[in-house]
């Protein structure tokens, strides 16, 4: 359980990082290392070069202007869940970040790493899709912005190019809607078996559910959310039936049941307090 050998860079600026990514073959960014290092130790990932971005403090900020909250790629899960701006504007995101792994993992793992790794059962990719976030990708060739919904392709696959660095995500500040989040994991700290973000309008029944853990990527579906619990149950089941699930049929059925149960809980949370948890 040892990685193959690799060369290691620790750049001091984003420009330097982009330069290395442009120059070196088979280079990979390392942030918290919580997904990459296990893959390397199993020799499933064999980068020739690691570019350690932990020195790039400019990627570690959380800032809000009047319209968006900007979260730097290097913000750790543990910072995210406790940050006053996140808690204030995106309580469901804060609640979701609290469910990631264990304390030791959250103090290392970063939002950028989680989004680029794109595990279908991870909380943060779904949170970005649910909140209609935009990912800011930078390379020596320039900067581009990609909607979260377009960024995630499928199991561990995204729109990022090998020479690109994810520098930040931008979330439009919500107005007139409330979010709720819930998930089901086998043990606290495990990746979720299934989970959901639910969005409901403060007036009327317009809403959306973003599911994760069922298909290969987070899936946001807009729907009128009935105030009647048994109608909602049917709505959720119908929506989930349309989604691709795991190959194993029994497992797929189980994931859909958990996802439906999570959506109902998330709905309760969204409507009960306006707080995400």
């Amino acid at each position: 359980m040892k990685p193959v050998s690799f060369s290691y860079y620790r750049p001091n600026s984003v420009a330097e990082a982009l330069h290395i990514l442009a120059q070196e073959e088979e280079a990979k960014v390392i942030a918290g290392g919580q997904s990459l290092v296990p893959l390397m130790n199993f020799r499933l990932s064999r980068p020739k070069t690691l570019v350690d971005i932990n020195g790039l403090r400019e990627l570690a900020a959380v800032e809000a202007d009047g319209k968006v909250l900007r979260i730097g790629a290097l913000v750790r899960h543990q910072e995210l869940l406790a940050h006053p701006l996140v808690v204030k504007h995106f309580p469901a995101l804060a609640a979701a970040a609290a469910e990631i792994g264990h304390w030791a993992i959250r103090t290392r793992g970063t939002i950028g790493g989680s989004l680029v790794h794109a595990d279908p059962a991870a909380e943060l990719p779904a949170a970005m899709v649910a909140h209609r976030g935009v990912l800011v990708l930078t390379s020596a060739r320039g900067e581009r912005r990609v909607d979260a919904d377009a960024f995630f392709y499928g199991y561990l696959m995204t729109d990022i190019a090998p020479d690109e660095l994810l520098t930040a995500v931008e979330l439009p500040l919500p107005s007139g809607v409330r979010y709720g989040f819930a998930e089901h994991a086998r043990r606290p700290g495990d990746f979720a078996l299934a989970g959901a973000f639910v969005e409901v309008a403060e007036t009327g029944h317009a809403g959306a559910v973003t599911w994760f853990g069922v298909g290969g990527r987070p899936d946001r579906q807009e729907m009128e959310l009935s105030p009647d619990a048994s109608s909602r149950e049917r709505q959720f089941a119908a929506a989930l039936a349309e989604m691709d699930g795991p190959e194993d049929e029994v497992e797929a059925r189980y994931r859909r049941q958990l996802a439906a149960a999570a959506a109902e809980q998330a709905y309760q949370r969204a409507t009960a307090s306006g707080r995400g948890n």
Binding site: F42, R186, R187, P188, G189, D190
Partner: peptide, 12 residues
């Protein structure tokens, strides 16, 4: 791996 062979955690 212990991702698949699940052990009880303190919370269990």
């Amino acid at each position: 791996s212990l991702m698949d062979y699940l052990l009880p955690a303190a919370t269990d």
